[in-house]
Design a protein around this nucleic acid. Structure first.
Lengths: 346, 346
DNA sequence: TTGTACGCGTTATCAT
DNA sequence: ATGATAACGCGTACAA
């Protein structure tokens, strides 16, 4: 833990020379260069980045504010953030809001916690982070980042609805379109849908994807085949019962949990998924791979959202312009994950 | 983003006075105190913590090195760390090794990555973190933290095997004992076990828990009732077939995945879990709550491990002594989670 | 090729 | 009650 001063003294040169050598600047003889480098190794010289940051007025650090680490979507997004930031040698300062633990499932309809976020942003700025990435647990419009923030901010998995704050989200429309297309390709003509809560942006976009595909295939949109779930397995069970009576051959559940509810109902009817009835889910939750049979679903590009958000962040930091799209929203594509729950009935 | 200098100038006082007032030090008239406070608000004064850290030679920050954010155990541990650290006003610098992504499932038998860890530790130390918490994905002995680290370190969910580096782990013995006791209490006399890989510390400890309870209940330990799994669902299925033929009435699977394999086998035999056969798992993975019937299992104290690790860390930082136990290992208790997969046959 | 001096924003010491 | 100034460790003009 020697400082640059001590190192200079040991080498019998000035700190300036040491600094130049350590930073690969020209103007030092090979002899002193070698001496200093060796001595640095020997003394286990450890630069003090805090001092460097103060001097440089840069920290190469960004603050990451996560709504709740324990929600399944968050760790993968953060993984994507760390992936890119490590390559770019940026340090992450992590703030975990623990919203779910504090407010349970209700917080994301309220603004109570906006003040909390502002405080945390302030603390992060005092620590001289160069930018802030806010990581939401579910997509929705979130106004907790002040408009006049003097440093760049990016919203991951949520909509800032601000020209100055880019948003990186899931392309739910194309994801839903992909899986419904697959269903039709397998010969299914009458495809029921189990939606999420109607005020959810995810649910709305996924429904649009479904409708688009029907239109492209010249199939009439029958609202009677759209059952309103609430993301829970129970609601999937209930909606499945309803849709099955209407004679659908396949069901698109807007998440894997509700798809599990479909399994429950079908089992109750002594039928089997992938035979009499086909099911597709959404999200690629870990458990869906263990269903019987494994669920065909759509995997969320969570890592890529984090990755993209930090790419955008660092581009901003490097003076990039904010004119990607009109509203600065980047929708990342999902991936279709074909397993065993859909039967080809052609 | 005014600095203390600008604030001082605006107030017509010296920086020293401003500093004193801002830090609630005595020696300033109420009048100037009020003036400065108001002016700070008005100018939106934001202290530069980097400068403060340099001056104070303290950062109130700790480095958290996670083996891989996307492994299920890690986010909850980090949640526990952030929980306590926020209360103590310590900042987390996060380093995500992404070991699983880089090396797949094989890394934790090798030492290849030790060098990587050392580099990351060095980077963190350059940033003047006051301590380091290493968060492992699975319990095992890990020697990647140098013995002669000049700052305190704590190992979460792993064993450092070093007197100087405390370890916080799961109390697998008592966890297994709790669930086996429960099984016996429900009237089961012949309880089969499906273990994890034999070199796993988790598997070894859980087996000891099982053996202890048999001993306490004066039941002979029959090695024939112990089947060796490898944590996968398939191995659970295989071992279940084997144990069921030996006439066990209940099976303790050492993780929820393998318990799922037991469900598979029982289903195949046209029997049902919670009736003809009882099953208990371990880990409380999310999916286990969705089994039919929901799995009785043991929940891992992941949050508490993180919380305890940071408690210990900060105690060390405050000059606490390292003499808690002889080997400085803290084993945190699990919680029995009774659901529907075990039948009372008394 | 190398060294001196200064500044980054803050706190602490010592005057006044 | 308040102010001037020296640190903290580093990088960088500019001088030698």
């Amino acid at each position: 833990m020697a400082t640059i001063k001590e190192l200079a003294k040991c080498c019998g040169v000035s700190v300036a020379t040491v600094s130049n050598i350590l930073n690969n600047k020209p103007g030092a003889s090979d002899k002193t260069r070698k001496l200093v480098l060796e001595m640095a190794e020997q003394l286990n010289y450890t630069p003090n980045i805090v001092a460097k940051n103060l001097k440089m007025q840069k920290t190469r650090s960004i603050g990451v504010i996560a709504e709740d680490m324990t929600i399944f979507s968050i760790p993968d997004i953060i993984d994507g953030i760390t992936d890119y930031c490590q390559k770019q040698e940026y340090q992450i300062l992590l703030t975990n809001l623990r919203l779910f633990k504090k407010y349970n499932d209700t917080y994301y309809n309220k603004d109570d916690y906006y003040e909390l976020v502002r405080q945390e942003i302030k603390k992060l700025m005092e620590k001289q982070v160069e930018g802030i990435i806010y990581v939401a647990a579910h997509e929705r419009v979130i106004h907790c980042i002040p408009e006049n923030l003097p440093i760049p901010a990016v919203m991951a998995y949520g909509y800032s609805k601000s020209r100055k704050i880019p948003s990186v989200v899931v392309d739910d429309v194309s994801g839903a379109a992909a899986i419904v297309t697959y269903l039709l390709d397998q010969g299914h003509k009458k495809v029921g849908v189990i939606t999420g809560k109607p005020d959810s942006l995810h649910a709305q976009a996924r429904l649009v994807g479904y409708q688009q595909v029907l239109f492209q295939n010249k199939i009439l949109y029958d609202p009677g085949l759209v059952a309103e779930g609430d993301w829970t397995r129970e609601s999937g069970y209930r909606c499945a019962a309803e849709l099955l009576e209407k004679g659908v051959s396949a069901i698109f559940a807007m998440n894997d949990l509700m798809a599990g509810g479909v399994y429950d109902r079908v089992e109750e009817l002594k039928q089997t998924i992938g035979n009499e009835i086909s099911v597709a889910g959404y999200d690629d939750r870990e458990l869906s791979g263990y269903y019987h049979p494994p669920l065909t679903t759509v995997s969320l590009p969570l890592h890529d959202i984090g990755y993209k958000a930090s790419e955008w962040m660092i581009e901003l930091l490097n003076g990039g312009e904010l004119e990607h799209t009109e509203d600065n929203v980047c929708a990342v594509e999902c991936m279709l994950l074909i397993r065993k729950s859909v039967k080809n009935i052609k």
